[in-house]
Structure formats: structure tokens, C-alpha cells
Design a binder for these strands. Sequence first.
DNA 1: CTCCTATGCTACAATAAATGTAGCAACACG
DNA 2: CGTGTTGCTACATTTATTGTAGCATAGGAG
Lengths: 111, 111
Amino acid sequence: MPKQAPVMKKRAVRGSRTGRPVMALLDLLGRRWTLRILWELREGPLTSRALRTACDEASPTVMQTRLSELREAGLIELLPGDGYGLTGLGLELNETFLPLHRFAERWSKQI
Amino acid sequence: MPKQAPVMKKRAVRGSRTGRPVMALLDLLGRRWTLRILWELREGPLTSRALRTACDEASPTVMQTRLSELREAGLIELLPGDGYGLTGLGLELNETFLPLHRFAERWSKQI
DNA sequence: CTCCTATGCTACAATAAATGTAGCAACACG
DNA sequence: CGTGTTGCTACATTTATTGTAGCATAGGAG
């Protein structure tokens, strides 16, 4: 059997103290609505309420939590007058997901 | 309470009333451990227990749930003798995330 | 055969996270 | 002034996840 049991630490407490950035990133992106928020901002800034609407009326509690986390992560920023928008870093990350739309179409046809 | 579209594939599209494939995909990937599981399988199959170990000892309950969802989504498959591995489709999706590691390194340096 | 180990998987109570509803303060218009 | 929108919060209810234990099956040794 393939074994590669990397000796890994503790609790899956939000943040992954493994020291490996990619794990922290996967953890961040794996929280509910995070990917969706970044996706919805791909074409420009949205106000927090427009974002909630775009995200199937997600509860303001978790939406606000995610926005704070994403801001702290430097992926989005609050632009007075325009709502939330991607930072340069966030834009860069979002480019990674651009092929996702095309993939999703293919994927939905195969399942 | 009702936050469900009229009649839809409940599991694959939770959180998306739209039925747009990319939303279903973002929703699937946004569940805890999903991204991580795909990531950990990037270099080859792992048994369910090796996967749990690799994923910070995630609880078997949710791990098993995610594995079922990912199997149903056609992204991973159970290879008797080798554990879980990516399907062609899963491999394809994973390629999308390949630049993620490099990005995570840059990202961690900017925050 | 029995014993040992590992696999995929499940039960279930405890805990953490998300939802839904309501509302606040600040700011901009009329 | 009143009306509307913004970002954001409180809080009780509901849902998701965790942690621990365990089951059934399969493959080797011994």
C-alpha cells in the first residue's frame, strides 16, 4: 500500500499551524462561501449586500466573518463607495480559478 | 429554513439555487476537507486511513462523507488494494490547483 | 484452523459552525 | 426632517463537524 503518512500535527483548528502556506490557504478556501465570494467578485467590486444576494442570501453573520477573514488574508479590500473588491493578490488567486468554469461544464456533463 | 431549490440533486448542489455547474462545484469544493483531500491525492492513491492521517486526523465521519461525495462527483474512485485515487476528471481538476502551491508561498510572504 | 493486522465504513454524543431574523449606527440623498 | 443604503452585530435555532468507539471483511503469517 502506498504509505506516506506525513507526521502531521494537531487539531484542524482554523489556520493550520503546519507552517506550510498551502495548507493554510486550502483551509481558508475550504470554509463555506469563501470560494464563492472570490468567484462573485471576479468581475468587479460588490457591496456586502449585493454579495449576500449573489451568494444565495447567505447569512450576514457568516458573510461578514468571511469578509473579515479574506480582508485579513489580503485577498479582498473594502473600497469606500464601491463595496468589496479583490486586491491584486486576490485577483491573482482568482486567475487560478478561471479554468474552473469550463471544467465545471465538462464535469456536470459527466456525472 | 428552506434554502433548497425546488427539486435538485440535493447533495451536489447544496447552496446553489441556480443549477449552474460552477456553483455546484464551488459548493462541493467549499466543504471542509474537500480541497485538502484532492490536494493530498495529487501524487497518488492513499488509503482512507492514510488520508485521515494526511489531513490532520480529520474525523472518520466527515472524511467518509467527503469521500462519498467526491466519488459521487466522479472526482475520486476507490481502487481495491490501493485505496482512493483521483479519476481522470479529478486529475484534471487538480491541475487547476497546481499553481496554488506557488501562490501560497507568495501569499504567505505578503501577509 | 486461529490470531493478528489493516482496510472501508458506521454510531453517537459533544462541540463548533452556519442560518435566519432582527436590528444598530453612520452616511447620503430628498 | 424622513427615507434608503451601507457595513456590521446579537442571538436563538438548526446544521455540520469532531472525537471516540466500534463493526464486518479480507489477507497474511503462524
